[in-house]
């Protein structure tokens, strides 16, 4: 109540003093005039200018400026969002390409390994074949040589037998004077030699 009373009171005072000040200011341009305004009560000219500029500012902001700035912000957020989506889509595509490339590489690698294995097996087979051939030939030659050896040994043995038979026959003829039966001699010589050998 006190403040309201005081306000009303001082408001009228200020009205009066405002009129006085403006009247004096109109007359001379110089140092500040009058005792100054009441520090509490509002002054009419300040109220009018403050209210007017605020209302103009508010209308401008409300109707044009803030919606425009806000729309710009929203559109930029949307474009950033769209860019994000585009980037993630591109990244997914690139990752799919990488996966495809890697699967192709794996396929080719396995194909190469398969071919290598096949070639290796072919070579292996040929090698074993060649080795078998060669060892067969060696065995053949060895058998041939052994046969030759046996033949020559048999020939030599028969020569020795005939020689020993002749010698034995001659020795017996000299010792006994009777020429022995050559068949018996040769058989006994043969027996003696084979017994000795075996």
């Amino acid at each position: 109540m006190l403040t309201a009373f005081v306000n009303i009171n001082s408001f009228s005072q200020v009205r009066v003093s405002f009129d006085a000040v403006s009247a004096e200011t109109g007359s001379e341009e110089g140092a500040p005039v009058g005792p100054g305004p009441n520090p509490i009560s509002p002054e009419m000219k300040e109220l009018v200018w403050g209210a007017g500029s605020f209302i103009v500012f508010l209308i401008l902001m409300r109707l044009f400026l803030v919606p425009k700035v806000r729309k710009g912000m929203a559109s930029r957020y949307e474009s950033i969002q769209a860019d994000h989506e585009y980037a993630s889509a591109t990244r997914d595509g690139a990752q799919a390409d990488v996966a495809r490339y890697e699967s192709a590489v794996a396929e080719i690698r396995s194909e190469a390994a398969r071919r290598l294995e096949a070639a290796r097996q072919t070579l292996d087979k040929e090698r074993t074949e060649k080795i078998a051939q060669v060892s067969a030939r060696i065995a053949e030659q060895r058998a041939q040589a052994e046969a030759e050896v046996a033949a020559s040994r048999a020939a030599a043995q028969s020569q020795i037998v005939s020689a020993v038979t002749a010698v034995t026959t001659r020795a017996t003829q000299i010792a006994v004077g009777v020429s022995p039966d050559s068949a018996v001699v040769s058989r006994s010589v043969q027996q003696a030699m084979e017994g000795k050998r075996s």
Binding site: E43, E46, W49
Partner: peptide
């Protein structure tokens, strides 16, 4: 006194420093 501190000469009649600041801030 405080009221002397708040006493501003009118730039043009009816417009003082406070009104000028309000206009400038708008």
């Amino acid at each position: 006194p405080i009221n002397e501190l708040l006493r501003w000469r009118d730039v043009v009649p009816g417009l003082n420093k406070v009104g000028l600041i309000a206009i400038a801030s708008a």
